[in-house]
Nucleic acid binder design. Structure first.
Length: 228
DNA sequence: TACTGATCATGT
DNA sequence: ACATGATCAGTA
């Protein structure tokens, strides 16, 4: 009888990664945290990334804040996604920070968004706050690559948002822009500012922004897998 | 109650 | 300040 244990090194291939992720399905966060000897916070208020770190440990991702894909050798990004009892996303999904300067000549093909989403291992986790953190279950993982339709949706929103940024309209962008991809603040707080350009072309200080996948998009990609 | 704008921890 | 990991929480 083999005991479930965290991967100590990056998985050597996709199959090993996927198999390990599938093994975790059905376990609770409390069980996995105890086995990995990771302290369990009371809730996520001050540990918003805790579930992500826990899964990184179990799947052998090089944990920490390196500007790489989680499984660089495999070209795979890991995303945990909080879902309700029906498997629908409870939150938007952060993709990457949006570049507000130095965007002359940037294209969708070479964008960070496209690179990040090229191949993603989605791990659904029960996320309803009424369920104590330790009792939330891991769901069935999904190794995903954007379909042509999904990539076109992403590309259209990305180009529209980047056009506004380049035109100095970043402060007029709200989370309502974009059908599947949105731009929202991504900062420690509202006092953290970064450089951008205003409508008149002059430099301005503004909140750092990030690209996020809207829930309708992640809901559809999860449903396509689990209902089809 | 869904959504948008704001926020939390940690490491480089 | 910015990258990693995201969720919180006020208000429409």
């Amino acid at each position: 009888m083999q005991t479930l244990s965290p991967l100590l090194n990056p998985p050597e291939n996709e199959q090993i990664l996927l198999t390990q992720a599938q093994r975790l399905a059905g376990y609770t966060l409390g069980e996995l945290a105890t086995l990995a000897r990771l302290p369990i916070p009371k809730d996520l208020k001050r540990d918003k990334g805790w579930i992500g770190v826990l899964l990184e440990v179990w799947l052998g991702a090089s944990a920490g804040s390196k500007p790489e894909q989680d499984f660089a050798a495999l070209g795979i990004e890991l995303k945990t996604i909080p879902v309700d009892r029906l498997g629908r996303p409870l939150e938007t999904t952060f993709v990457c920070v949006a570049p507000l300067t130095g965007n002359t000549g940037v294209s969708w093909e070479t964008s960070h968004v496209r690179h990040k989403l090229k191949r993603v291992l989605w791990v659904p986790v029960e996320g309803e706050r009424q369920i104590p953190l330790a009792q939330r279950h891991i769901g069935t993982p999904l190794l995903w690559t954007p379909s042509e339709e999904e990539e076109q949706q992403l590309r259209q929103d990305w180009e529209e948002l980047m056009d506004l940024i380049v035109l100095g309209q970043v402060e007029r962008i709200t989370a309502r822009h974009g059908e599947v991809l949105q731009l929202r603040p991504k900062a420690a707080n509202s006092k953290a500012l970064t450089n951008a350009f205003g409508a008149d072309g002059a430099p301005i200080l503004t909140l750092p922004r990030g690209f996020y996948l809207k829930k309708n998009f992640t809901a559809a990609l999860l449903a396509r897998h689990f209902l089809l």
